[in-house]
Computed example of a mutant assay.
Amino acid sequence: MRYTSWTSDRMFVSYRQYYLQGDDFLTEYDDADTVERIYTGNSLAAGGPEHLTVLAGTHTGWIRLTTQQCAGEPVLPGQEWETVVDVSIRSTSGVLRLFRWGGDVVEDAGNFATAGAGWYRVRVQARGRDEGDAHEGDAPVEEHFMTVWPAPPQPDAVHTANDAFARAHYDPTRPPGQPVQP
């Protein structure tokens, strides 16, 4: 399977958040309820047209983040990842870039809308969110892995929800989050 990857041990998060965001996001769409949908949904990520918000355990500081752009769905990860979710988002501009809270784009990570405008599936894997929540040092203790590939829209899928935040907020008896249409 063809893919492009990028890794950083110094991905800065503020307010526990980082994003994928498209060129049309702030002019055409907003994310007024995205964080709320994370808390009441899969506990890790939620998105809509031109954006995805990911919730880290680290409030303000560094995490290790690896991203991957694939042509098709990757193999599910092993049990070393504490929380793993899949979310559908739509790119209307044909551009999805990685952003830090506050609007700083991470240019090195590239454009995640590899097939242009259309629907994408995003798998976010996290481990160390509990440690990140309690951590106050400079070295990252939390790690995320985000994979993006073109795919038709589907409801959110929670493969694993085993960190403390997920156990407190994810309720498997609730219906899964649905893709937000443009």
Rank of each mutant, 00 (worst) to 15 (best):
R16M: 12
V141T: 06
M1L: 14
A168C: 04
H159M: 12
G132H: 06
Q125T: 00
V124D: 00
D30G: 14
H169P: 00
T53P: 06
L76I: 04
T58C: 12
V106E: 12
V54K: 06
G57C: 12
T114P: 00
A139E: 15
D104E: 15
Q125I: 01
Y29C: 10
V122R: 00
R64I: 09
A45D: 03
I38H: 00
A117W: 02
A46R: 02
R127D: 00
P182E: 13
T40L: 04
D33A: 10
D23T: 15
Q69N: 07
D33H: 07
G22D: 07
L65A: 04
A134I: 02
T66G: 03
S91I: 12
A113M: 06
C70H: 13
E107R: 03
F99C: 08
C70M: 10
A126H: 01
M11C: 13
Y170W: 14
P182H: 12
R37K: 08
Y170G: 03
T27I: 13
A115F: 01
A151M: 10
D31S: 10
L44I: 12
H59P: 08
H135E: 09
A168G: 05
P172V: 08
D108A: 15
A117L: 05
H159W: 15
V122H: 00
G118T: 03
R167D: 02
T58P: 05
V35M: 06
F112P: 00
E28F: 09
Q68G: 08
A157C: 11
L26H: 11
H169F: 14
T67I: 06
E50K: 05
T53V: 15
F145C: 09
Q125W: 00
D138F: 09
D171V: 11
V87Y: 10
V13Y: 05
V141N: 01
P172N: 10
A126G: 01
T160F: 14
P176C: 13
M146K: 04
N111A: 03
Y18V: 06
D30Q: 10
Q79A: 14
D31M: 05
N42C: 03
H144E: 11
T114R: 09
G128A: 06
D171I: 11
V13E: 05
V84K: 08
S93M: 12
E50Y: 08
T173I: 08
Y19E: 13
D163G: 02
P140F: 09
V180E: 14
D86S: 08
F112M: 12
V148Q: 09
G110R: 01
Q178G: 07
S43V: 06
G48D: 10
E73K: 06
V85M: 04
Q125R: 11
G128P: 00
P153L: 09
D171N: 15
D130S: 02
Q154L: 13
P176N: 13
T34G: 07
V124L: 04
W101I: 02
A115H: 07
D108F: 01
L52A: 04
W6R: 07
T40F: 05
V106Y: 00
Y120L: 03
E131F: 02
V122T: 03
G61Y: 01
T34N: 04
S43M: 02
V87R: 07
Q68H: 02
M146Y: 05
L65D: 01
R123V: 03
Y120M: 02
D24T: 11
G103H: 04
E82Q: 15
W62D: 08
P140W: 08
A164R: 13
E73C: 05
P49E: 10
F145K: 10
H51Q: 15
V13C: 10
T7H: 14
A71P: 00
A151D: 15
D24K: 12
